[in-house]
Computed example of a mutant assay.
Amino acid sequence: MKKVILCSDVELEASASIALLAQSSAIDLLGVVASAGRVSAEEASANAQHVLQKTGRDIPVLRGSLDAIIADLDPLRKNWEPAPGLNHGKTLRNVSLGDPREHSGKCGVIWMIDTLMRSPEKVTLLMLGPLTDLALTLKVQPDIAAHIEEVVIVGGGYRQTDVSAAAEFNIHYDPEAAAIVFASPLPKTVIPLDCAHSALLKEKDLQKALSGSVAGILAMESLCRLFQRHKSVDEGASGLPFPMLLGAVYLFDPLVLGPTIPYRVDVDYSGGYAYGQTVFDTRRIFDNYNCLVSFSTCKKKLVECLRRLAEG
């Protein structure tokens, strides 16, 4: 059984991913670190608690970072909103699933360090949101690297972006944190937006995959709301990308991804139009590779793996 810590700004798609992973017999979900991003840290914690309560699983939810690492130093990054005209970005700001509840009093970063350092087995980290908490964890306790099996980063984009012409939300929200993580010695697999865009899913695809199980029904509650939000701005007719679901499925069956290729991956945090851009050295100019990256997946395989994951 794979031991997993999930870090996310828990909104609708991430909530669906948590529902599926929490009920899987192949995954030992040790805890959820809920931080700010598309929603506030308080809303993210409430969303994670809401879905875990419905699964009946006693899995701790820890509140993570309240903001990006240096966001308060730059007034232009406070109260972030997508650039005008980027409807897809606006729809990513999803409403909370439930009212804020009492969260564990322990800091998510400290909990991650304690859990990783005490674990007799290596742990996989699934990063479904900004990388702030992992970056802080690395700065506080670099020795955690020896206790991590793999870091799965759902974020970045090569030809596909969402929050700007150059950037994907998870990296753009805290590019300094992303730069710290990409520069670390941790074994990293990156699932960029391109991967999810190669297998757009319609509501009927997800209904087919998820309607036959309790976990799947819980996941569909969140995903149906996500489809409704996209329909309200005339998006999603040809299907929607689900990178977070793809990340969850990857833990269950890594073969769901197309070829994973070692690349050098860096992040632009210098400002300007390329701010938050994920830079993939696809020409392989440099040989100091720091990540495995996949740019594709098979829709048929993804739907089948979702069905198997939902069945537990």
Results as ranks from 00 to 15, higher is better:
Leu136Val: 15
Glu176Ile: 06
His103Ile: 08
Pro175Asp: 07
Thr115Tyr: 01
Lys78Val: 10
Tyr158Leu: 12
Asn87Phe: 04
Ile144Tyr: 10
Glu81Val: 14
Ser164Asp: 07
Asp133Pro: 03
Val151Thr: 11
Gly129Arg: 05
Asp99Gln: 14
Val163Arg: 13
His103Ala: 15
Gly155Met: 03
Thr161Leu: 00
Gly156Tyr: 00
Leu126Glu: 04
Asn79Thr: 13
Ile148Ala: 03
Ile171Thr: 12
Ser164Val: 04
Lys106Pro: 00
Asn94Lys: 13
Asn170Trp: 00
Ser119Val: 09
Val109Trp: 06
Ala135Ile: 08
Gly155Phe: 02
Ile113Gly: 01
Leu125Lys: 04
Trp80Leu: 15
Ala145Arg: 09
Gly85Tyr: 02
Gly157Cys: 07
Glu176Thr: 04
Gly108His: 04
Thr137Trp: 11
Thr115His: 07
Pro84Thr: 10
Lys106Asn: 07
Pro175Asn: 06
Val163Met: 15
Asp114Ser: 12
Glu81Ala: 12
Lys139Asp: 11
Arg159Trp: 12
Leu134Trp: 04
Lys122His: 09
Leu138His: 07
Gly108Tyr: 11
Thr115Asp: 03
Val140Lys: 11
His103Leu: 05
Leu131Gly: 01
Lys122Val: 03
Pro84Asp: 11
Ile110Arg: 15
Asp114Cys: 03
Met117Gly: 06
Val123Glu: 06
Gly98Glu: 06
Met127Tyr: 01
Arg118Ile: 05
Thr161Glu: 01
Val109Lys: 07
Ala146Glu: 15
Gly156Lys: 04
Ile144Phe: 12
Ile113Lys: 08
Asn94Pro: 00
Thr161Gly: 01
Val151Met: 10
Lys106Asp: 12
Ile148Asn: 01
Lys106His: 08
Thr91Val: 13
Ala145Gln: 13
Asp174Glu: 08
Leu86Val: 03
Thr137Arg: 09
Leu92Tyr: 05
Gly155Ile: 05
Ala177Thr: 12
Val123Asp: 07
Lys139Leu: 07
Val154His: 08
Arg93Pro: 00
Gly98Ser: 12
Gln160Cys: 13
Leu116Trp: 03
Ala177Glu: 10
Val151Ala: 12
His103Asp: 11
Glu121Asn: 12
Asp162Val: 09
Trp80Ala: 14
Pro142Ala: 05
Ala165Pro: 05
Asp114Glu: 15
Ile144Ser: 10
Val109Gly: 02
Lys78Ile: 10
Met127Pro: 00
Arg101Gly: 10
Leu125Val: 13
His147Gly: 01
Asn87Tyr: 06
Leu131Asn: 00
Met117Phe: 06
Ala178Leu: 04
His88Pro: 00
Gly156Arg: 02
Gly89Arg: 02
Ser104Val: 11
Phe169Trp: 09
Val154Glu: 09
Glu102Gly: 07
Leu131Val: 03
Thr124Asp: 00
Tyr173Arg: 11
His172Thr: 05
Gly155Asp: 03
Asp174Gly: 06
